[in-house]
Design a binder for these strands. Structure first.
Length: 278
DNA sequence: CCATATGTTACTCG
DNA sequence: ACGAGTAACATATG
């Protein structure tokens, strides 16, 4: 569920509340949420550690502990990190509870149980293969353009590939492709130089907008995104194609179509986003 | 019962 | 090796 803007929102919000606090106790209700190491080792190594920093890489949250370890987590589809007073009762899908020294709980809540924690000394063991941060200093058009030219893969699954660019998910990929006027099944190597340039900018634009709007919160169910204070973002109100099937394209007024590409629901305008063949 | 869901990975086939 | 397609993980909702 959370893509780059949602994870960024959570990290920014949590930073002021958890940095310099100590993790005084850990409760594990669902052991599979801990990918590594074994749960008893995990508890031993995290307990009584001070939190030095919290940062984001792609869709991962990285918490630097005072010992040599990093607590890395990925929320996958429905994972949430919720900070609340430790007097609040944990609820159904709260799988991990971190008691903090400031009388708060940091709860890992995950309806579908896909989210994972990794406690490692070397962050590269988890983050090493990720592509560039699209809002970072190392996202260069020259590299992006070259990599696009080297593959015939469909552009949508390519943008979803975290080794190509890190942080895009289903929502922001559809949004970026509409913004750039590119068909989701467009073979990457057949993109014109101009389209590559427009796409490069569109990726950054839709992600920045998502962050400015504190993320996209779809639907009302339990698994939908909220930030760490349980509040919703507002980006869903400004989506151009995602979840807008049959509604008019904001550019040409024709109905937005929904198809399946690489097993993912894909929203686009068949008039504004044409396939280009060489 | 069936399809779908903001993510990722392993596997198959051509 | 590459790329497309499929299933799997686990739960909820329409």
């Amino acid at each position: 569920m959370p893509e780059l803007p949602e994870v960024e929102t959570i990290v920014r919000d949590l930073r002021s509340d958890i940095v310099n606090e100590k993790i005084t106790d850990i409760i594990i209700n669902y052991e599979k949420s801990i990918a590594t190491p074994a749960p008893n080792q995990f508890i031993k190594l995290v307990e009584n550690q001070k939190i030095l920093a919290i940062t984001r890489r792609a869709k991962y949250i990285v918490i630097d502990l005072a010992n040599p370890y990093y607590l890395i987590m990925h929320m996958r589809m429905t994972g949430k990190l919720i900070l609340q007073p430790d007097t609040t009762q944990p609820t159904k899908h709260d799988h991990i509870v971190f008691q903090l020294s400031n009388a708060n709980h940091l709860l890992f809540n995950d309806t579908r149980k896909f989210g994972r924690f990794y406690l490692v000394k070397n962050t590269a063991s988890i983050l090493g293969k990720l592509g560039p941060e699209p809002l970072g200093d190392n996202f260069y058009f020259e590299d992006f353009s070259k990599k696009l030219s080297k593959t015939s893969r469909q552009i949508k699954p390519l943008l979803l590939d975290q080794q190509f660019v890190a942080g895009l998910g289903n929502i922001y990929t559809d949004e970026a492709l509409w913004e750039a006027g590119i068909h989701p099944k467009q073979p990457a190597n057949l993109l014109s130089p101009n389209k590559k340039k427009v796409l490069f900018s569109a990726i950054k634009q839709v992600l920045r907008k998502g962050i400015d709007n504190r993320g996209t919160s779809l639907g009302n169910g339990d698994g939908n995104y909220t930030s760490s204070d349980n509040s919703r973002g507002t980006n869903q109100k400004q989506l151009t194609v995602f979840a807008r099937n049959n509604q008019p394209c904001l550019n040409c007024n024709r109905p937005i179509k929904k198809i399946v590409v690489a097993q993912r629901g894909t929203h686009y305008c068949s008039n504004c986003q044409r396939l280009r063949k060489k």
